[in-house]
């Protein structure tokens, strides 16, 4: 019985395609600050062969290679900016999950402001066109005296 269990376990382990897991223990760098930087950088880099995942999350082999590459560069002392620039030179802007600030993306980054301002502008213009609250004609003396008499002069 135990033999059967062992054989079936061995078969399972051989048959199961061992997908590389996101950030395996052997990738973790000994320096926790560098590791934290590596994780932060990885979460901003796209896995190029996956459907919309970062290399930090992805199981793919390319993701693992890129994670190791990032850690290698960090170990060599590169700054975050330099590592990003290096990857962009290799793979293009597509690899950055945070779109770069450049001429082609000003509309993207400016969109929230533009929409907010346009919306506010439309609302203000529409309000100008609306008829305002008409100021009520103040009561004349006679009318006020009349009112007070009716209310019994107690001011309520």
């Amino acid at each position: 019985m135990i033999f059967v269990r062992m054989v079936s376990m061995a078969c399972l382990l051989c048959l199961a395609p061992l997908a590389a897991r996101a950030v395996e223990p052997d990738e973790i760098m000994p320096d926790p600050r560098l590791e934290a930087r590596a994780r932060a950088l990885s979460s901003e880099l796209r896995c190029m062969v996956c459907q919309n995942e970062s290399i930090d999350e992805s199981h793919a082999d390319l993701a693992r290679d890129l994670r190791l590459l990032v850690r290698e560069r960090l170990q060599a002392g590169d700054s975050d900016e330099q590592i990003r620039a290096f990857l962009v030179r290799r793979y293009g802007d597509f690899i950055l999950l945070k779109p770069p600030f450049k001429l082609e993306t000003w509309l993207l980054w400016g969109a929230p402001f533009l929409v907010l301002l346009t919306g506010a502008g439309i609302i203000l213009v529409a309000r100008r066109r609306q008829p305002r609250f008409a100021p009520a004609n103040p009561l004349s003396e006679a009318e006020r005296a009349n009112l007070d008499a009716m209310l019994g002069d107690d001011g309520s």
Binding site: E44, S54, D93, L97, L108, V115, L116, G119
Partner: peptide, 30 residues
């Protein structure tokens, strides 16, 4: 405005690629 931001962020890569052929990614950081 929130809605428009999400809309533009989602469709921008598509639009940019159609117009200029450049590929960018708009992900969680944006």
């Amino acid at each position: 405005t929130c809605c428009a931001t999400v809309f533009i962020g989602t469709l921008y890569p598509l639009a940019l690629e159609a117009v200029t052929g450049e590929k960018i990614s708009v992900g969680p950081p944006f």
